[in-house]
């Protein structure tokens, strides 16, 4: 039985005077204990909103959440705010994108860890302070006994993100959601942080949802990958299968648009034309059709369903054929 089972999750933003905006559209996925699942897509694909909906962090007014988020037998969407607050930080941890703005600038890093320990573990201040030092040590911050007393602005970017991870993992949550944890960091630091996350999660039963637009992150970390477009999952596959044989034209396009070391010199990157459209036109066709090189007449008339195919799930009328993938590579 999966630890987290998200079924038919939809988030519609409603505001007076504007048309309702569907940010997440019938998304279903599951995360097993110890598994790392990636949610990949460009800005506006609904990946972050999905994570906020799972955490119950969307504003009550304006955001209309439907579907089911089942965490270890508990329906999170129907929990009261109080029960939800007891779960957050204890069972569900979250690491945010920007480590500078996600830390409270007027409180020491150590206090921000011990605060959570006191809240959920019922520890007294002394125990919690000791726990904070241990956590900082665990996330690889040198001289943790000194660093606990420092303020966020005294830490470097990488160290701030480590501190943020320490806060999120302080109570050993069973599910960790990492929302673009490396986007705001230097490339060299990015690799360190990803390794840290992998090390912390590996060998434990901690499940992780990795939200990113960076396929490199996915390649290194995730067991299973969900590619999102316009609020829907368009392709789901095991990591190696997805990279070896992307079938959805969008996934295929994403992979073709990253530079590779083994590509011949002088080869051009192939961008995906256009950008995500604001309001999602899934009604009456595929949302990706306007940008899709494979689009058929049918794609503009009938919305494709997410169907199992070839050891993966695929939402496409005219997927890229495995031969074409190989051919695309040969062309390079």
């Amino acid at each position: 039985m999966p630890l987290l089972d998200v079924r038919d999750l939809s988030v519609v933003f409603k505001r007076k005077g504007t048309a309702p905006f569907t940010a997440v559209d019938n998304v279903s996925f599951a995360v097993e204990p110890g598994q790392t699942v990636g949610l990949v897509g460009e800005s506006g694909s609904g990946k972050s909103v999905t994570s906020l909906a799972v955490m119950g962090l969307l504003p009550k007014r304006g955001a209309h959440v439907t579907g089911s988020v089942n965490f270890d037998g508990t329906e999170l969407l129907s929990l009261s705010m109080k029960e939800l607050r007891n779960r957050r930080g204890r069972d569900l941890g979250m690491v945010f994108q920007d480590p500078m703005s996600s830390l409270n600038p007027v409180i020491t890093v150590g206090r921000q860890i011990s605060e959570v320990l006191q809240r959920h573990r019922g520890q007294d201040r002394k125990e919690a302070d000791a726990g904070a030092v241990a956590m900082l040590d665990q996330v690889g911050i040198p001289d943790p006994a000194r660093r606990v007393g420092e303020y966020p602005h005294q830490l470097s970017g990488g160290m701030r993100q480590r501190a943020l991870i320490a806060i999120a993992l302080a109570c050993r949550p069973r599910l960790l959601i990492a929302d673009e944890p490396t986007t705001a960091l230097d490339v060299t630091i990015q690799a360190q942080i990803l390794k840290l996350l992998a090390d912390l999660v590996r060998g434990t039963e901690t499940a992780m949802i990795m939200i990113t637009h960076d396929l490199g992150v996915v390649a290194g970390l995730c067991d299973e990958v969900n590619v999102m477009y316009g609020g829907k999952i368009v392709e789901r596959a095991e990591r190696h299968r997805l990279f070896a044989e992307p079938r959805h034209p969008y996934t295929h396009g994403l992979l073709r648009s990253i530079p590779r070391l083994d590509a011949p010199r002088g080869e051009k990157l192939v961008p995906i034309k256009g950008s995500v459209v604001d309001n999602i036109p899934w009604e009456g066709g595929c949302a990706f059709a306007p940008r899709c090189p494979n689009a058929l007449q049918r794609c503009r008339q009938v919305m494709p369903e997410l169907e199992p195919e070839d050891a993966r799930h695929l939402r496409c009328h005219n997927p890229v054929q495995p031969a074409a993938v190989a051919e695309g590579r040969a062309e390079r």
Partner: peptide, 25 residues
């Protein structure tokens, strides 16, 4: 702000969020 969202995501009590995270800032 992000850090208030982060504190909320950690299950910090509302009172604490207001007095420790919002007010001093």
């Amino acid at each position: 702000s992000d850090h208030v969202l982060a504190a909320t995501a950690l299950g910090v009590r509302r009172r604490t969020v207001v007095f420790r995270h919002m007010l001093p800032n």
